[in-house]
Design a protein around this nucleic acid. Structure first.
Lengths: 126, 126
DNA sequence: TCCATATTTCTAGTTTTATCGAAATAACAA
DNA sequence: TTGTTATTTCGATAAAACTAGAAATATGGA
């Protein structure tokens, strides 16, 4: 198998992070909540997760760059990293219909996606 | 944690399938090759994989619906299921910037993606 | 300082996943 | 039928991931 590029490593990291029921639920919750994010306890309450379990999964998501941690007093606020999600989607679609065959044979229809352009992660503290 | 919807199960299945170096390489190869696909031996040659290993991963990808098997004589031709990839992306972006905050606060810029509209998986045999 | 809150780390047990040699199955051809 | 090619299944091993109780750390308030 060929050498693994950095892009591929990043995509694998993000995919592995999302390929788990609990983490997918956490990530989607944070996506829904938006840039304001939620503190750990609030996530635990909403998803009924044990502290250690949630902490483990938050770290996984953060290591993959899919969520961002922002300390606020004694709490830590986590929010979705929309740019990372966009990056993953770009990677997955990057070679979609590559070459001449696909773009002509398969009816590729353009589609509008909402994506985050800037990181937009300003916080009071941190 | 809340009940897992069918959409979520499907997304988890696809994400788990892609979150593995060998399978991601197989899938991307098939995406690049396009709707004509490749037979198992050709994939094994290109990625230098043992038969049993490749067979294992092909089954995983097929079970997740990301690739399609088309028997052709004594060979089996696998091709990417572009509709499944589109479905996964739809799921991941579905709640992106949900609610009023995100659509106004984060600069969501429209972006054109090439996606497969129809299944388009006609084959000679099968 | 002392206490309460918020989150992480440690540890250990269970489950799942990945790999590949070897044998088995399936299809076609001679 | 016999042989060849193409792929899958079996079996065993090694590695990684998930979970959560309990203890530890860190922050802020009284």
């Amino acid at each position: 198998m060929e050498m693994t590029s950095n892009d591929t490593k990043q995509a694998l990291s993000a995919l592995a992070a999302l390929a788990q029921e609990t983490r997918l639920a956490i990530f989607r919750l944070l996506v829904e909540i938006g840039p304001e994010g939620l503190q750990v306890g609030a996530i635990a309450d909403r998803l009924s997760l044990a502290n250690a379990t949630l902490s483990f999964h938050l770290k996984e998501l953060a290591n993959a760059g899919l969520i961002i941690a922002a300390p606020n007093g004694r709490a830590i606020i986590y929010s979705a990293n929309f740019a990372a999600m966009t990056g993953l989607i770009d990677y997955l679609t990057q070679n979609c219909c590559a070459g001449s065959v696909c773009s002509t044979t398969i009816a590729c229809k353009p589609k509008v996606l909402k994506t985050a352009s800037a990181t937009n992660t300003k916080r009071k503290t941190a």
